[in-house]
Design a protein around this nucleic acid. Structure first.
Length: 561
RNA sequence: UGUCCCGUAGUGUAACUGGCAACACGUCUGAUUUUGGUUCAGAAGAGUCCAGGUUCGAGCCCUGGCGGGACAACCA
């Protein structure tokens, strides 16, 4: 095979290979049907995005469909608030599930009938042992369990009792329905798993209709069957459930969906489990589920990430069965890659210091052409006001700069982007703090951008904002939420929250050029030489708030000051 | 002490039914540049956990180790 063929050849992950093989062998008439099955008990995060892109992506790729199905079998923890946010997030990621929006709770009647069928087959029984007693009799992974004294109850009695459970005759915890499988199985999930429990809790969709609710193992696979899901993709921790999943297909005689597990996403400097994320929210470590430091979809959106950048990220990380940890740098690369092509450039000075151009007319003012995006000609250009006093970045000036510092210092020359070359003549410092208060420069009128007749070359180009026209804004500088690469790799008694980065958010007052004064929440920009920023919804008419999405890649400035 | 899964450059993923290990990120050079961004050119970096076996040939197959992970919620 030559290199061109190799290039054109599409690479399929192991799941796609299975599906391809199923299509080839005409399994399920070649039909591909997947589903994304969130439990509405929390917000979606980047790990779910991996699953969404996998499930919807694979359906799209092979001419199938992907259902959105809420796994809402535990009314204690679930709420419509989450249903709404989940739908919003999936839509934002770019997927449309049409009318294929389902709920496990829609199948409760059917699920109940499945349970009855299992009882009738002698494959389920009503248990009266307490939760603790059941656990105690279950054995351990290395020791077999003991059979319950209620295990051999007659079918009719099981049927009667189960119906009474449904009718609310018993208190919570008094009885459960268990599948009758094998208490000695090396697989704990096969040791007579509980499949229905009593919960006298109103459900966000079925209200007070039910006193009993099915467990995950008796709802998920059955919902898959009802929806004729061909490939049921889930994460590795469900692997040991698969024998039970298949056992129920056999005894319920339902559509044989195939469960396939893949490794969940782990990211460096990040936690990705609803439980941990909830702790961060509840403990006030962040300002809610959509805090831009959160790896939630809503957090990433607010941070300024684009759906395309997340999709590219998902494509790059691939899908496999081995556990790993992805470097967040890859996620950052993915946003920069996208924003570099799409975000308009503006001047934003994070930490301003004033430069006075002493030979520029006091009241002088001119509007200079500034290209919006060198990567996208269609983005056009704008006019920027220039005047005698401009702000530059404080870090762009050094009194005694090292050799490779390409910016401003006494006696040095730099170009102000889109404007003139200036030369530093003098500066003032605050007597008390030694901080630079003002820098004095002269400009060369013959070096105007686009009309430079001197041919002069300088090593540095600075961003700037005219003092008189500057727009004060608030900027939130975000950094990693944790300073530990794997916050969950802990000694006992340690807590991942001890590794929250105290500098993950710095709020500062900055200035930006006038042209963005009408920017709307969600709009993204590149502050030239600084990074990508996104207007936060907290912004008000008089005060724009920018969230830093990511810094620009920086290959040198740190080394040289 | 059980069962199952996994083990390829620093990280992640590839390598069609066995045919001399590839791509991306990261790292490092150099060029270009009115963003120390982008782009372009290039480099270093694994001999595929180990040991046997089958084979003309093994990252792919077999056996045995070693290492990592999962599993004992009336959670999903």
């Amino acid at each position: 095979m030559n290199s061109e063929n190799a290039k054109n050849k599409e690479v399929h992950n192991f799941i796609e290979q299975i599906i391809l093989e199923d299509i080839r062998s005409h399994k399920n008439e070649g039909r591909v049907q997947t589903r994304f099955p969130p439990e509405p008990n929390g917000y979606l995060h980047i790990g779910h995005a991996k699953s969404i892109f996998l499930n919807f992506g694979v359906a799209e790729k092979f001419g199938g469909n992907c259902n959105l199905r809420f796994d809402d079998t535990n009314p204690e923890k679930e709420d419509v608030e989450y249903v709404d946010s989940i739908k919003e997030d999936i839509r934002w990621l770019g997927f449309d599930w049409g009318n294929r929006e389902f709920y496990a709770s829609d199948y409760f009647d059917q699920l109940f009938e499945f349970a009855v069928k299992l009882i009738q087959k002698g494959k389920a029984y009503v248990e009266e042992l307490s939760s603790d007693e059941i656990a105690a009799a279950k054995g351990t992974p290395t020791k077999p369990g003991k059979e319950s004294p209620y295990r051999s109850r007659p079918i009719e009695e099981n049927l009667k009792l189960f119906k009474l459970m449904k009718e609310g005759e018993f208190e919570e915890g008094k009885k459960v329905l268990r599948a009758k499988i094998d208490m000695a199985s090396p697989n704990m999930h096969m040791r007579d798993p509980v499949i229905y429990r009593i919960k006298k809790v109103p459900h966000h969709r079925t209200g007070n209709k039910w006193n009993i609710y099915p467990m995950y193992d008796f709802a998920h696979g059955q919902s898959d069957a009802i929806e004729q899901i061909t490939h049921s993709l889930c994460t590795l921790e469900f692997e040991s459930h698969r024998p039970l999943y298949n056992w129920l297909i056999e005894y319920l005689e339902i559509f044989p969906s195939r469960q396939i597990e893949f490794a969940r996403l782990n990211l460096t400097y990040t936690v990705l489990s609803k439980r941990n994320l909830l702790e961060l929210v509840k403990g006030g470590y962040v300002n809610g589920w959509d805090d831009p430091r959160m790896p939630t979809i809503s957090g990433l959106r607010r941070r300024g990430y684009t759906p395309a950048s997340i999709r590219n990220f998902a494509d790059r990380i691939g899908v496999a069965r081995r556990d790993g940890m992805i470097d967040v740098a890859l996620l950052e690369f993915s946003v920069r890659e996208d924003l570099n092509k799409t975000a308009n450039r503006i001047m934003g000075i994070l930490d301003p210091v004033k430069v006075v151009i002493t030979n520029y007319p006091e009241e002088g003012e001119e509007w200079l052409d500034a290209i919006n995006n060198p990567e996208d000609e269609a983005a056009g250009s704008r006019k920027m006001p220039f005047s005698r006093e401009v702000y530059i970045e404080r870090s762009d000036f050094m009194v005694d700069p090292p050799r490779k510092f390409f910016r401003l210092g006494p006696g040095r020359e730099v170009r102000l982007k889109h404007a003139y070359i200036i030369a530093c003549e003098d500066y003032n410092t605050d007597a008390a703090t030694g901080e630079i208060t003002e820098i004095y420069c002269t400009y060369d009128p013959d070096t105007k951008s686009g009309a430079d007749i001197t041919g002069k070359k300088v090593k540095g180009t600075l961003s700037w904002v005219s003092v008189r026209h500057a727009l004060p804004v608030t900027v939130r500088l975000y950094d990693k939420l944790f300073h530990k690469e794997d916050p969950l790799a802990l000694q006992k008694d340690d807590d991942f929250k001890n590794y929250v980065n105290p500098d993950s958010l710095k709020t500062i007052q900055s200035v930006v050029e006038l042209s963005v004064q009408d920017a709307k929440p969600g709009e993204r920009f590149q502050f030239l030489r600084q990074g990508y920023f996104c207007v936060d919804p907290d912004s008000s008419a008089g005060n724009l708030i920018f969230n830093r999405t990511a810094t620009l890649r920086d290959t040198g400035s740190k080394k040289h000051g």
